[in-house]
């Protein structure tokens, strides 16, 4: 562990994960994940369900605590503070502060149902960042405009379609100005005809240089937008590389099987 910690340095990638392990009871969800994600990069994580891809994403923003290894975001060790050769667990408030570096988009949207679209977007800036309410609202409207929902600012989540809700959720995450956006199967809960509008918003985000980690089953999106595709299975990264290589010409048998199963 001690030598792991010294690996972080000033020229850090946006995310650095080393030997990340996570178990749920006797089930090992992650069995040693090593991954670097650089500023501006779009990484798509693919793999069968239960492969640990969502768990890994949730470890990055500390919705899960890791059992072994370490993660750094922008060079800062996540969840712990180094004191000599010991790692001290951070307080809840410090963890909340660290989470500000990441924005998270959930599979089931998780919009706040008692707040309008605009209130969903401004809640974090006003309550957590203490942004002036008017400024937060004008920026919130701008963000909702970016995801094509200017006309839905005052709608409650229940009045929006799944695709619209997920776009509000993206705007809500962006409102915190994170350095890294995490997407946990953002289109898996959507009706097929609504997938396109969400992917199109994500495509625009990628084009604007946002650093993104996307757990997805949309191989077409990965092929088109990702700088790198990571294939996970059984809690390990089996293979990673440019989309053309991983999706078109994978070297590992497990990757080949998965891709042919998805495409068939």
């Amino acid at each position: 562990m001690a030598e792991l910690v010294t690996e972080a340095n000033a020229m850090s990638p946006t995310v650095r994960a080393r030997e990340v392990r996570k178990s749920f009871g006797s089930f090992e969800a992650l069995r040693g994940i090593d991954l670097d994600i650089n500023l501006g990069e779009v990484v798509c994580v693919i793999g069968p369900s239960g492969s640990g891809k969502s768990t890994f994403l949730r470890c990055i923003n500390q919705l899960e605590t890791i059992d072994g290894g370490a993660i750094w975001i922008n060079g800062e060790l996540v969840g712990y503070r180094r004191a000599g050769d010991r790692l001290l667990e951070l307080s809840e408030r410090e963890i909340a502060r660290q989470r500000l570096a990441t924005g998270m988009v959930f599979q089931r949207f998780n919009l706040f149902p008692h707040k309008t679209a605009l209130q969903n977007v401004t809640e974090g800036p006003v309550q957590v960042l203490k942004t002036d309410k008017r400024k937060a609202e004008s920026y919130g409207r701008e963000l909702l405009g970016r995801v094509g929902l200017s006309h839905k600012c005052d709608a409650y989540p229940v009045e929006l379609s799944g695709g619209q809700q997920q776009r509000v959720a993206i705007a809500r995450a962006l409102a915190m100005k994170p350095t890294l956006m995490l997407f946990d199967e953002p289109t898996s809960a959507l009706d097929p005809e609504l997938v396109g509008e969400v992917l199109s918003v994500m495509r625009d985000l990628a084009a604007s240089g946002t650093t993104m980690v996307v757990v997805t089953h949309e191989l077409g999106f990965a092929r088109e937008v990702a700088n790198r595709v990571v294939f996970m299975d059984g809690g390990l990264i089996i293979e990673s590389g440019p989309p053309a290589q991983i999706l078109g010409n994978p070297t590992q048998a497990r990757t080949q099987d998965f891709i042919s199963a998805v495409l068939s």
């Binding site: 809840e92 809640e123 995450a173 915190m176």
Partner: peptide, 21 residues
């Protein structure tokens, strides 16, 4: 529980998430 996670994800600590969300 997704509501707790969404509140955490925008940087809220537990008591704020309880009160606001």
């Amino acid at each position: 529980s997704g509501q707790y996670e969404a509140a955490k994800a925008i940087g809220m600590h537990r008591l704020k998430a309880l009160r606001r969300i």
